[in-house]
Design a protein around this nucleic acid. Structure first.
Lengths: 334, 334
DNA sequence: TTTGTTTGCACAAACGTTAATCCTAAGTTT
DNA sequence: AAACTTAGGATTAACGTTTGTGCAAACAAA
């Protein structure tokens, strides 16, 4: 039911009803009696202000747009859930857009998002620099937060992971456990996320005085098929790695299956450190040692930035969760 | 940019601009020249009708609400993706609501959804009959489609799976492969989805003249923890099943890990049929034989029903995808 | 009684559209 | 030339809010 319908029903003006329901009856000197009458009738008839009228008047929609490359990817699903949960506290709703890792579709969606006059945007782009992305970001008046795959050169408030540090931590941990031959299952090396993480891995390896063998490094995309293919390439190497780091969430699924396929036991023959904690990681056998992103914290920060229209980017540190997929090996002295 | 701003810029009335951009210039006798002028300027300045004004005028928001129990669950994530993709074709957007399997939150969300005056609702409820759900559904004028966990007694257009048939198919397949001792990993047995599937399983078992051993049937919820616990119960039985059916998507993840933990090999020692095809099911080792829901088709049907305001419910049949997790066993004659 | 001060609410405008109606200048017919 | 048609738009109202202002009644003060 409308405010106007309710007002007619109560023989009051829409103004009065609106003022009561907006929560400031005393400010406008609405009597106790009237206030009570309105509130009770509103409850009874499920009356609430029409968001379109309200939005038109106030210039805001009460919605923020969330763009992800693939909601089917557990990382983005978790992100979406946390963002929705947080936004709900300020009575905002989430408009979901899924580009399917397709840059052309992403462009279209960005245009659509903008034309919908949302109150803010949380964008996890495919990872490619497009005109639409720049346009969306440059829209000075609207709060935009970039997440996950940041675009170098596109200047925008962002919430992200210190990917270099995360990669470094993963490799450093393996090295500390005695591993000297470290393989790496990458995603799309053209995206900054992947490159940064890999650079961190390389840095740790070099720092330890070891060298990087690119024949046990593979990957060309974030899909499961890509992951499986890369895993096979890594494992079919005559000189197998003693530890493998999967640089993205899908990677671990691919790798585990290929490992099982090849009859390689974890962590006895090969140790694994995976990026992105999955719901099942701790139930897996062996439980997976993980570089976990603080998804909840990042989501909350993104929402806070949107709400407060801050302009400062935040970088979070990943956390290494020790579980059972990494074995300690004796260091071979060469 | 607004239509009114654009109109002012072009020294035209808002009406004219609106009519050109709405795509019916000839119907209102707008000259070719003017039409062209408007179209070009609109492109140049990224001008588009404000959806709030438009919505207010037309009485629709161009958005439909999607309510799921858990977007992190791959089934609902896939559903969301397909629904969004389909809705996009008619320029509608998806407002996402995630109840987190919590009935109280679901109630609140339903109220919020209704007050947002959306053009339609696609609801995958937690599975419990609530007043709010009934209210949302009874809202005669708005198109509502129920999916997945239907509520018996709540009369509403729905798109669902023939769950009995699906359960029957799973069990029948195992029996056909010679299995006589069939275990079952259930979800929440109070929900109709789970009960129907289980009844299908029971029917197939009884039809084959075998009997159901409830000591290898377990499950009390849809979460991963529930799944792990139930899997342990089933596998710790002294007399292990020769085949296990997991009645929901999370189940297979739990079961596989527990199996690996117990050192049971699939399909040599135990065969598995899983509900809900997962992206990794075919890459798994062994690849998982699956009872797959036609998620894409179901999503498209839901969107079609919403669009056409049909009232007829549709029931889809699950498809059995034969892969490698079921072994043929010799039938023991008793 | 007149003037001033509250109290309690209604009225009007504006947000941006669109659909129905109306207006004006030009061209066409008689 | 007068009357009629047509082209090409502009005006107006309405969708449902909220906010600034207005205005009557009641009450107090002088």
């Amino acid at each position: 039911m409308n405010l106007s319908e309710l007002a007619a029903h109560l023989n009051l003006s829409v103004t009065t009803v609106s003022r009561v329901l907006a929560g400031s009856p005393e400010k406008y000197r609405i009597s106790e009696a009237t206030t009570k009458r309105v509130v009770e009738a509103a409850q009874k008839y499920h009356a609430a202000p029409n968001p379109l009228g309200l939005g038109l008047r106030k210039g805001q929609t009460g919605m923020i747009g969330l763009l992800v490359p693939d909601i089917t990817n557990p990382f983005f699903a978790q992100l979406a859930r946390e963002i929705e949960r947080e936004l709900r506290k300020s009575d905002k709703a989430v408009l979901l857009f899924d580009s399917g890792e397709d840059v052309k579709i992403e462009r279209k969606l960005l245009r659509d998002m903008i034309s919908r006059r949302l109150d803010g945007f949380i964008l996890a782009p495919v990872g490619v620099d497009t005109e639409e992305l720049r346009f969306a970001v440059k829209n000075e008046n609207l709060p935009v937060v970039l997440m996950d795959r940041l675009i170098s050169g596109v200047d925008c408030t962002s919430v992200s992971l210190d990917n270099f540090d995360a990669g470094y931590k993963a490799a450093h941990y393996l090295i500390q456990k005695g591993h000297q031959r470290i393989g790496c299952l990458r995603g799309d090396s053209r995206t900054a996320v992947d490159a940064d993480r890999y650079n961190g891995v390389v840095a740790a390896i070099c720092e330890a005085g070891l060298n990087v063998d690119e024949s046990i490094v593979a990957g060309k995309g974030y899909s499961l098929v890509d992951g499986v293919e890369a895993s096979r390439r890594i494992l079919s190497n005559v000189n197998k790695p003693s530890g493998v780091i999967t640089l993205n969430g899908q990677g671990i699924i691919a790798l585990m299956n290929v490992l099982h396929d090849y009859g390689v036991s974890v962590p006895e023959e090969i140790s694994i450190v995976a990026f992105d904690d999955q719901p099942w990681s701790k139930f897996s056998s062996p439980a997976i040692t993980t570089i976990a992103q603080p998804i909840g914290k990042m989501a909350r920060m993104a929402v806070e930035i949107i709400g407060s229209r801050e302009k400062e980017s935040k970088i979070f540190k990943a956390e290494l969760i020790e579980r059972a997929s990494v074995a300690e090996v004796d260091v071979e002295y060469t």
